[in-house]
Design a binder for these strands. Structure first.
Lengths: 155, 155
DNA sequence: GCCCTTTCTTGACTTTTTCTAAATTGGTCG
DNA sequence: CGACCAATTTAGAAAAAGTCAAGAAAGGGC
């Protein structure tokens, strides 16, 4: 594991804190995005924690700055969109005037806690939708989004 | 039908074009909103055509102005939200930075034509979703939105 | 018709996102 | 290694959508 990380990191600066960009770097390579400082830093925040995340440009930028990364908000927007286009992220629309990005790109749905403006994943396995009409001729379904809006205190 | 319309219209100005506000007026009365000129005009555009509509504040405002109604955009926003709160409209979020309002408030879902930014209703009867987890304790489902995003030319 | 309250309007303002032009960086080639 | 070119980043301006506030106007009960 450590060997692998070291190898992959290669000539890229890993910073004094070790080689924490390994996974992020792998992902960027995989989709053909040039691994710049900013993309590596954002990728690390998004993917290297292991757990799935739901961020907005604002929250991710804030988090990056808090962690000492020098990234502008515009770059965060660019990066989120590039990651989305590359399939590393999924954009979830729940709320007018705020875009959420989900690190979980597998097939799944969402709870949206309206009181807290928080998303929660619902694994799609087990969820079945039947009876939907077929898409009009010549068009193709790009995605089916199911959002369950929830009000009230959380358990 | 004509009698009824005349009766209901009562003392309210119906304009020289007849009594076209009848249905709109009824709806406002039903939900306890004071039937002002602006609300009547917008209600007419929304409800009196008979068919279901999907509008944004922008498009409705434009339409109202085109029809000679003197309404400000802020009033259109206010009215759309009041109508939504009263259950006359349903808000549909498909697209970041643009709120759609649907005159069809019955239980149904949507196609969203990504290329044209157009919504299309899907009748919910026949559509069944199974396997969804229950809402967390203490919270209440306020709505389940199913949006089928479609790419490509329309039939 | 009068008065009180609700509603409407205008215009400024906020928030989120995009754009632009200049500066910087990554990767390549010699 | 050093120069170079194209991709990327940046700051700040600008756009787009929606909200807010204060005064003006209009409903509706009397």
């Amino acid at each position: 594991m450590e060997d692998q990380a070291t190898k992959i990191t290669g000539g890229v600066a890993t910073g004094s804190s070790g080689r924490p960009y390994a996974q992020s770097l792998q992902r960027l390579r995989a989709v053909g995005l040039r691994p710049t400082r900013q993309r590596l830093a954002l990728g690390r925040l998004l993917f290297d924690t292991g757990c799935d995340r739901h961020v907005t440009a604002e929250t991710l930028h804030e988090e990056a700055v808090r962690h000492g990364a020098k990234v502008s908000l515009a770059t965060v927007y660019n990066t989120l969109h590039q990651f989305t286009d590359s399939g590393l992220l999924r954009e979830v629309v729940v709320d007018c005037g705020r875009a959420y990005f989900d690190t979980n790109v597998s097939d799944h749905h969402h709870f949206f806690h309206e009181d807290e403006n928080k998303l929660e994943d619902i694994c799609a396995s087990g969820v079945a939708v039947s009876g939907l009409p077929t898409a009009p001729e010549g068009s193709e379904v790009s995605r089916v989004d199911i959002i369950i809006r929830i009000k009230g205190k959380r358990a």
